[in-house]
Structure formats: C-alpha cells, structure tokens
C-alpha cells in the first residue's frame, strides 16, 4: 500500500462536562489510502462525527483531543498553529456536512458562499472565484443562475448538491462526508451518492464517508470501519465485512438492514440502546447488548484480532476460536 493520505493513530477525544469526562472517541486508529473511500459506520452517539471534526482541528471546548496523531498527507494536524490550521482547512480536507439545510448562511447568496472559501485561501479575485463557483454548481446539476439565490430558495436535494460543489472548490485531497444523505428522500439520496462516487473517481479523491446506514456504504465504500461507543470494533474491506462480519455488533447491524435482493428475511433490531458516553460498560462495551456475551466480556477489554488479511475485529469470540487469534500489531 502506498503512503496513506490520512493516518489516524490512537486518537482520543474527550468532552469535559459537568457530569464528568466523556470519552467520545477512544484510541481510534485508521488509514485512508489515496483514492480510497473509507466508510465509518455506527449508531448516533458512537463518536463518528467527532472523528470527522478532529481531522479539521475543529474540536472546541468543552471538547479536547487528549492524545493521538492525525497525519494528513504527512503533516500532523495536531501540531499546526491556528493560522496553519486555517490554511489547511478546506484546502486539504473539505467536508460535506450533515443536514445540508443548515450548512449555508441564510443571509448570503449561494455563489458568494462558494467564492469566499476560495478568496480566503488564495489571491484569486472575487469575480474569478464567483465564476469558478458557478462552474462547479453547473457540474453538480444546478443552473448557474442559482448562484445569485439565497439558500432558502433551493430545494433540499439542490442544497445538498450545492454543499458538494462547495466542498470541491479548492480541490481537496480528502473529502469528509458526514451523513450527507440523512434527511433527504431516497431519490435525492441516490443522486447524491452517485454524484459523490463520480467525483471521487474523476478527481481521484479520498473520501471518509460517515453514516449509520450500512446499505449506503455497500454502494460506495472500499473499506469499512464499524464504530461502537467511541471505538472501532471491526475494520475490513467492503466484501470481507459483508461476507464475514466478525464482530457481533457488525452482524447485528447487518441483520437490521433490509436487503433488496436475496431471500426475504425478518429484520432484527439490536436490543437495548447505545451506552451513555459518560458511563461505558466495563470490559467489552457491547457486552450488555451482545447475544454471545461471556463472563470474560464483562471484565476484560478485547483487543483487535486479525480475522483475515487487513480485516480486524475486537471480540473474544475470535480468540477462543484459536487458529486466527493473532493480535493486530
């Protein structure tokens, strides 16, 4: 594998609240190769969005990155000064945010909001920036006349496409898409996913795609990390995970996902709800909801184990199977 565009090592992010310290992201490590789409899946509150914000150095008090390294194209984001960070944002890592409804400033024209990202990073003139913005809007299928409109004059689907256009104005190396299709109807969802996929291919973009929806990842991701309670519990290639889900949580997520093809089967919910981040269960954090929980799971924390090449899962079931019980380095 060539040098990864993004390399996150042992990232821990906490939020200091009145009720105590909340570990939103707990010793998370992952890599994204150039041109790869990495899907991060998990329920709400699993720490997915915090992972994304940390990449841009956007964790703000009461949140704090307490340990770990984030290398983007070889540069450590945590070591950048405030000014370096400002220049780095959007130029190296751009983001398509969750809830496109609110991603635009309501009192500013769409075209200007695309343009100011450009003028903030280079000496490009405002006219040129506006022109480039109109070109990008056309590329996402929005008539360039809408550059002069305000956000409330666009439909939800159009706004989400405009958000994608805005994310591409500076040709970023890595695109973070945080639940970009949530709150859209299925047709608009499909449009957005296809659009992201085609841009990703054309521009050889690396993408971190964050969602709670495994079905979406099946359409777009090359590799998938499954997050639960602030940790990545399983990681592997799309086909590896789909064919051989090795963590009980991954299997449970798949059972909860309807399938368009194949035999009719009953969808199963996951009993219980995700743990409160300020009071994770001891041992394996999934054990209270796990069908296979053993005595050991209540007290000891499992470490990632190699399932097959570049496919890891953190579960004691794998160790007890013996043969492949080899720890990830």
């Amino acid at each position: 594998m060539s040098d990864p565009i993004l390399s996150v090592r042992d990232l821990t992010v906490v939020y200091r609240t009145r009720r105590g310290i909340v570990r939103a992201v707990d010793h998370v490590s992952y890599d994204i190769a150039k041109g790869e789409v990495y899907g991060l899946a998990g329920e709400s509150g699993s720490g997915k969005s915090t992972v994304a914000l940390a990449l841009l150095g956007l964790i703000q008090p009461p949140g704090e990155v307490v340990s770990g390294e984030i290398y983007v194209d070889g540069r450590d984001v945590r070591k950048m000064t405030e000014d370096e960070l400002r220049r780095f944002r959007w130029a190296s890592v751009a983001m398509v945010f969750q809830g496109a409804m609110n991603a635009f400033n309501p009192v500013m024209k769409i075209g200007e909001q695309l343009a100011d990202a450009m003028t903030a990073h280079s000496s490009i003139s405002n006219e040129e920036a506006l022109k480039h913005g109109r070109e990008l809007l056309t590329r996402v299928g929005i008539d360039e006349e809408f550059a002069g409109r305000y956000p409330h004059e666009l439909s939800g689907g159009m706004r989400q496409r405009a958000v994608i256009a805005m994310s591409l104005v500076l040709n970023p190396k890595l695109l973070v898409a945080d639940e970009p299709t949530t709150s859209l109807d299925v047709i608009a969802q499909d449009e957005v996913i296809k659009m992201l996929k085609s841009f990703q291919r054309d521009l050889d973009l690396s993408v971190l795609y964050i969602t709670h929806d495994l079905a979406v990842l099946a359409k777009i991701a090359d590799r998938i990390g499954v997050m639960y309670a602030g940790q990545i519990v399983e990681e592997g290639g799309l086909n590896q995970l789909m064919e051989k889900p090795s963590h009980p949580y991954t299997s449970a997520l798949m059972d909860a996902m309807p399938s368009l093809f194949g035999s009719l089967r009953e969808l199963k919910g996951i009993p219980g709800s995700p743990p409160d981040p300020d009071a994770y269960p001891s041992g394996c954090r999934f054990h209270p909801r796990c069908r296979f929980a053993m005595e050991k799971c209540r007290s000891d924390e499992p470490s990632p184990v190699v399932v097959e090449e570049r496919h890891y899962a953190a579960c004691f079931l794998l160790e007890s199977q013996g043969s492949k019980g080899q720890e990830k380095q």
Partner: peptide
C-alpha cells in the same frame, strides 16, 4: 453554535469574517 458557522470555520475563513458576515449578520 449553528451549523453554518461550523461550516464557515471548516472552510478556513478568518475569525473576523466568521464573526461579522456569518454570525453577526444573522
């Protein structure tokens, strides 16, 4: 605390512009 201000930060805009044109105007 609104989303569009977070987006403005992510876009690498200067603090001055965020305070005036994004948060202030609203």
């Amino acid at each position: 605390g609104d989303d569009f201000v977070l987006v403005a930060r992510a876009k690498g805009l200067s603090n001055r512009r965020i305070v005036r044109t994004y948060a202030g105007a609203n």
